[in-house]
Design a binder for these strands. Sequence first.
DNA 1: ACCTGAACACCGTTCAAGT
DNA 2: ACCTGAACACCGTTCAAGT
Lengths: 205, 205
Amino acid sequence: MVARDSLSADVIVEAAVARVDSHGMDSLTLRTLGEDLGAHFTSLYRHFRNKEELIAAMFEYVLRDVSDDVAKAPDEPIARIRSIAMAFRRALHRHPALVGTIVATEGTESSFALQSSITQDLAALGVPTKEIATRYQMLESYVFGASMFDYLGAPNHLKHRRQRHSSSGLKEFSAASKSEKSVDSHNEAAFAAGLDAILIAICGK
Amino acid sequence: MVARDSLSADVIVEAAVARVDSHGMDSLTLRTLGEDLGAHFTSLYRHFRNKEELIAAMFEYVLRDVSDDVAKAPDEPIARIRSIAMAFRRALHRHPALVGTIVATEGTESSFALQSSITQDLAALGVPTKEIATRYQMLESYVFGASMFDYLGAPNHLKHRRQRHSSSGLKEFSAASKSEKSVDSHNEAAFAAGLDAILIAICGK
DNA sequence: ACCTGAACACCGTTCAAGT
DNA sequence: ACCTGAACACCGTTCAAGT
């Protein structure tokens, strides 16, 4: 049905990302994806050994955006770490359903490069060598963890969070739950504030 | 096959939790669970409208442990919030595969009670009313998010994290990745330190 | 009333068959 | 060499049938 060789790993990954962006991770099946591409679903196995490998490629796809931002990050270690963390957050904010792909990855080249870079920044700040692993992990768990939690259920995460705020019945949450937009800005403000708190903790000697 | 009325919602939930504890969330299917219970898998529908409802009940099951600890929490607001957060963490540490159940829940009575309690603690500390929602969310995203990230892939999460530390090739991570036990204690130490950082940030005026 | 069994519409994955 | 089609072993869910 489809033109020969019109399928490539890149084309498939982009279609997969577009699908989860608009319909969520649950809607990603080989059959629906094949339909999006106008190809028989079994032909996807020519480019990916299995679904897990496709999902890992989707994660790499979002990491590519981050790498561009990292190149422009400032030199001062703390500002640099914050900048990298925010770049991750922005990438996931653009494709919230992709938080579900963090699961699958064993650790990619790009992620090791970032880990190495941040490790060096921490060392430059005078963090004792034996504390670096724990400090790094505080950052990693926070950035990925908070994003996972915030974006869970994408693309309906804002609707869900808003509903939860509303049905709590607490007056303190009525402003935040006014609209999906206000939920989103509260989300992002809370993330940035939490990141600053974590940064203060991990960058001290 | 099974004795009449031997099945109850509680029995099913406990069997489901036992299964995910030892074999992980992926292994939880109605068919395997029915086999564990010696019952036909379709008979589970007599107690839960669907699988999602069963998973919500599993989440409530872990919240029950937390409630006991909350009753014993100190009165001083900051210590109290820390104590509640650590109670959550401990409950999830006991059943790491249950982090996957956080997804499904819309917000349960128990969770609203905790939200209300923490909201009052923040108010007692003099946090401005209009900031409470954001502060609360910093805590919620941190506690659930970091735990989700740390325990992802349970019950093999320690093996995976250890592998990732090892294959990073960074000398700073060799001590942490010595054994699964050391990975675990680094995990928990990082969580506690991050929690303290978040607490400082959210409890200030 | 409670449990079983067959059936349905979906999955991911494999592999022989077409061109 | 590349794509298709049929088949397989699984899912969650529904519902008529047994007792």
